[in-house]
Design a protein around this nucleic acid. Structure first.
Lengths: 348, 348
DNA sequence: CTGTTAGCGCTTTCAG
DNA sequence: CTGAAAGCGCTAACAG
């Protein structure tokens, strides 16, 4: 009978045996320890290669009590914004020698909690997180903080939690956007917003209200549409709003997708953009400069956000007392990109 | 002097001690082993919760010789196509209890090789991969296959490697696209392609050539533009081509971004689409139905590709002899989505 | 510069 | 149904 080809993987023990040295020497040589002679290092590396040796990080991590991976939990993964954030994160963590374990909460609170548990079990060095829509409790986060697992939040943060974070200056840029509409002669400005219990939308709403007040514009509660999540909902609400008596003359939208829905409805109703109604979106999706009319929007620099979140994480890792310290909040400055959908000067 | 609050994490040893049982019992209880009485299980779980016990998967993995994570290597991460693939993969691997370790080769061969090594060191259960642009050698892949590490490739596969894979029927759908152009009366069909050493572009080129031949259209080598990678390159090449004497009357593009570049140049040159020139893109990006004219394109169902790649992976994992077997290739059927940019019927 | 030794936290035979 | 004991592969005191 043929014996099974027991392709047992070679370990440092095999390398050590072949060279007649101790496993410590092999371990040290492979890790570039300074107290090993160049000659030995060369020999070890040679034999390791011959034996097709591949290190076992699981064993090393267990021994070291430290894992070289960082967990990332996102509400979505297939969005331009989020995938660019990941891209930014990866560009920092990879050169630093970390793996990225990514999981997607799918805007589901329960899955967020489970993902946290899974990452904890994996002994990740830290967790970078943006909250799901549904997350209203944050016990799962306090829990990991209390266990000294580094946590960095970005974009959708939990305000009451004292952690390092990266956010946009949503309020300020929204004020700027409303001021821009005002400067273009729009006076009856509506807002189409996603749910305002979420940090970023809350701040956009805040900016809207602040700007209206400081510009002396009257606030019409019928023009404040909240809880819009999809293009279809935006279309629906726009249809109702623009068929009513008391129509606004501009709409500030908290996402480009919402803005797209509004634009499609306005077109359908034969309303001219921006002559009759101005529209502003948020996040500068690829399509915003490609649609008709081109859409005024707000660039958020998601990659930059990811880069900063990752840098923050690397700073924290290894700092035993990070949870005791004053936490940093990095503000990314968004930019208003003025295009045709709000630019009345073009047509006057 | 205050003693440091040694917040040493509790392990099963602590749980066992508190209950006066053995660690084996705790381990078994926590893992729902059948030979443990319900009463014990309850007690163990209760104490584990009290002690805020969190399992250490690193130790468990080392002992089991098996890690609950799957590695994914992609050429890009911030593209609609790839992020949707990840989304599909995650939707299968998460419920199955796997972590996803994602790394991005950035179209760089070296980084692809390094990522493979890193994932190997992490002892991942398997690797799902789509090749970088630059990858021409596949020794790094043969290597992991020979070590019985499950490998699934998708989209950009290495043809000569005998592994499970998920691909589009690029050739067939391209033939269909060209036939569509022919049916619309276009006869002088050019192709703007990304580098054809890459599997998917090679097949699109193949489809183009096959279709031309079977439709009896003459092949003009000046109309075969290869190595286009960016919108700018597409614009540049289109400008040259459409200022030349011998102009095509349609352009098949291997991506929507290329098509966008072509359309922008045609507009600039005052050439009517589709009356004078028809354009087809590939991958049905969000913007394709939003631009003017709306762009005929090919939907590839990236999420579906991810789902299938992940399922294939789960099938393979644990199957000791997978590398000996005949490998499956799953073909995802793309769909031609006809819009204005190729639809002459609209205007005749 | 190198070797000896003791575990990291968990699972899993084997033995009751 | 439960316990004792061994050990996964590696690293890091400690000791020369």
């Amino acid at each position: 009978m043929m014996a099974d080809m027991e392709k047992k993987k070679n370990t440092i023990v095999d390398v050590a045996r072949k060279l007649n040295v101790s496993t410590s020497t092999v371990s040290r040589a492979l890790n570039g320890h300074h107290s090993i002679s160049e000659r030995t290092k060369l020999k070890v590396r040679k034999v390791a290669a011959e034996l097709n040796y591949s290190p076992n990080n699981v064993a090393a991590s267990l021994r070291r009590g430290k894992v070289n991976s960082i967990g990332v939990i996102l509400p979505r993964i297939n969005s331009t914004f989020m995938s660019n954030c990941i891209f930014g994160i990866e560009s920092v963590t990879y050169p630093a020698g970390y793996n990225l374990i990514i999981s997607c909460s799918n805007e589901d609170y329960k899955k967020e909690v489970q993902s946290i548990a899974a990452l904890k079990a994996s002994q990740v060095s830290g967790i970078i997180l943006s909250l799901s829509n549904e997350t209203k409790k944050t016990a799962h986060l306090s829990n990991i903080i209390s266990q000294n697992i580094p946590l960095v939040m970005f974009d959708r943060i939990a305000e009451l939690l004292n952690v390092d974070s990266v956010v946009n200056d949503d309020t300020k840029i929204t004020v700027q956007a409303i001021e821009h509409l005002h400067a273009m002669g729009f006076r009856k400005i509506a807002i189409f917003s996603s749910p305002t219990h979420i940090y970023v939308y809350k701040n956009r709403m805040k900016g809207y209200l602040e700007a209206l007040s400081s510009l002396g514009l009257t606030l019409n509660h019928n023009w404040i549409i909240e809880n819009i999540q999809t293009k279809e909902q935006a279309q629906h609400s726009a249809e109702i709003l623009f068929k009513a008596k008391d129509k606004p003359d501009a709409v500030f939208c908290t996402s480009d997708t919402i803005a797209l829905g509004v634009i499609q409805t306005l077109k359908k109703l034969g309303i001219q953009i921006p002559q009759e109604v101005g529209v502003i979106g948020y996040s500068n999706d690829t399509f915003s400069e490609l649609i008709q009319p081109t859409l005024t929007s707000i660039e958020q620099y998601p990659q930059e956000m990811g880069v900063n979140a990752a840098k923050l994480m690397l700073d924290i890792i290894g700092d035993k007392n990070w949870s005791m310290q004053v936490h940093k909040q990095i503000h990314i400055k968004p930019r208003l990109i003025i295009r045709d959908s709000s630019n009345r000067l073009l047509t006057e």
